[in-house]
Computed example of a mutant assay.
Amino acid sequence: MKLLPTTPLEQLEQRGRLLFKKTFPDAGEPCIVAHAPGRVNLIGEHTDYNDGFVLPLALEMQTVVVGSKNGKDKCRIASEAFEGLVEFEPNKDLKPGDPLWSNYIKGVVVNFLRNGYQVPAFDAVVVSEVPVGGGVSSSASLEVATATFIEALGNLHLERSKKALFGQAAEHEFANMPCGIMDQLISECAIQDCALLIDCRSLAMEPVEMKDLNICILVCNSNVKHQLSGSEYPLRKQQCKDAVTVLQSIDPKITSLRDATMEQLNQVKDKMSDVAYRRARHVISENDRTCQAANCLRKNQYEAAGKLMTESHLSLKDDYEVSCKELDILVDLALSVPGVFGSRMTGGGFGGCTVTLLRKDAVSSVLDKIEKEYEKRTGIVATAFITRPGSGANYKRLV
């Protein structure tokens, strides 16, 4: 099983510049290149929209937006991954539409306008190597790269958290996905060689160094995405709200599951449905695991951190019910190899990727195990890549 290569940022930029010249032959040289990474979440799943804690890191894989003002009244955008040219007037009442990928860009434009910023008409192209549908936030990387491009285009200087919120709002309004803030925030704010412990209520961030070169992160893509995930995500969010409503009967100060303890949850267990109880149990315990894992990684206690990651997967599988057969198989195969500290599904679930914390010298054994067993048991070929914690969004001027 071969690892997917990570394309250097300079090569992505060059592909973007070539695509820009091909798409807009009369536009001259592009003036801005902006980029933002995908992400993988080490631990802290389905806690972000419950005001909880998450521990993501940025991938080295990036989405790049290359372009310039065009002096016209329409924005024109093309993507390396999709055919056709998208056009829209930036200052008109934009609505979601086809093609679907363009909605993430339109949603960001709308949020700039809504917050009092001017968005000049521009020509731009998108080049990305962040896997789509793999649970590693390809949409957030596009949103944040777009926001960074517009920021540079207008000579603006926005707070990083504000740009992340623009991306989250685009996801809510133009993709109908009620996500938390984690994906956009790590894509925007990531620090090289660090995971970030993010408090999704206050947006406070604490770097957690991961500089040990003998330890690495392996991301395995199940290459399956079950269609029920679109409806199940908002359902989980509502079930968490239902649990909060019951918890407020014993303490009105509980405004989200972030505020509740396991002791309080068990006090009201008989007053809520079994489903709501299990959803709440996952979130409350996951917050504890996430903070513990950050402390373990700070002390280079990789076995303890890995154990917490594996416990997270079991909770997501049994209490939150967002795993699937393929993800469970990938986790089990990884855990059977010496040198693996922990493994879990990452992202919204129902497919996508697993994340595994392991010694670098164990990578080839894990890949061999997955290559021999995963396709045999699922009929699907998995793909994988290794990542180090990368840096967040940025831009540069070309002319």
Rank of each mutant, 00 (worst) to 15 (best):
119 V>A: 08
126 V>F: 06
250 I>N: 00
399 V>W: 14
283 V>L: 00
281 R>L: 09
217 I>Y: 10
201 R>E: 14
242 D>M: 11
91 N>A: 13
267 Q>R: 12
33 V>F: 15
46 H>T: 01
307 K>W: 11
244 V>R: 04
70 N>E: 09
373 E>I: 03
341 F>A: 07
98 D>A: 13
367 L>P: 07
84 G>A: 10
272 M>Q: 08
300 N>W: 11
55 L>S: 05
355 V>S: 08
264 Q>F: 03
124 A>K: 01
192 Q>M: 14
272 M>W: 04
47 T>E: 01
332 D>L: 03
35 H>D: 07
346 T>S: 12
245 T>V: 10
104 Y>K: 08
254 I>V: 01
230 G>F: 14
219 V>S: 02
52 G>A: 03
186 I>F: 12
27 A>Q: 09
257 L>H: 05
173 E>I: 10
11 Q>H: 15
166 F>I: 00
357 L>W: 01
119 V>G: 03
241 K>P: 01
342 G>C: 05
75 C>M: 04
138 S>N: 08
14 Q>Y: 13
176 N>C: 10
199 D>E: 03
78 A>W: 04
235 L>E: 05
79 S>Q: 08
27 A>G: 05
208 V>G: 06
225 K>N: 09
34 A>I: 07
144 V>Q: 05
136 V>C: 13
136 V>Y: 11
103 N>Q: 09
221 N>H: 08
236 R>C: 00
184 Q>W: 10
296 C>Q: 02
33 V>P: 08
305 A>D: 06
39 R>G: 03
332 D>Y: 01
95 K>L: 07
320 Y>W: 06
138 S>K: 02
8 P>C: 05
204 A>E: 15
56 P>H: 02
50 N>Y: 02
89 E>T: 15
331 V>G: 06
259 D>L: 00
392 G>R: 06
110 V>F: 00
222 S>W: 12
131 P>T: 09
158 L>C: 08
155 N>L: 02
337 V>R: 01
155 N>I: 09
31 C>D: 15
203 L>E: 14
201 R>F: 08
152 A>L: 11
87 E>D: 07
28 G>I: 06
132 V>F: 15
14 Q>V: 15
177 M>Y: 09
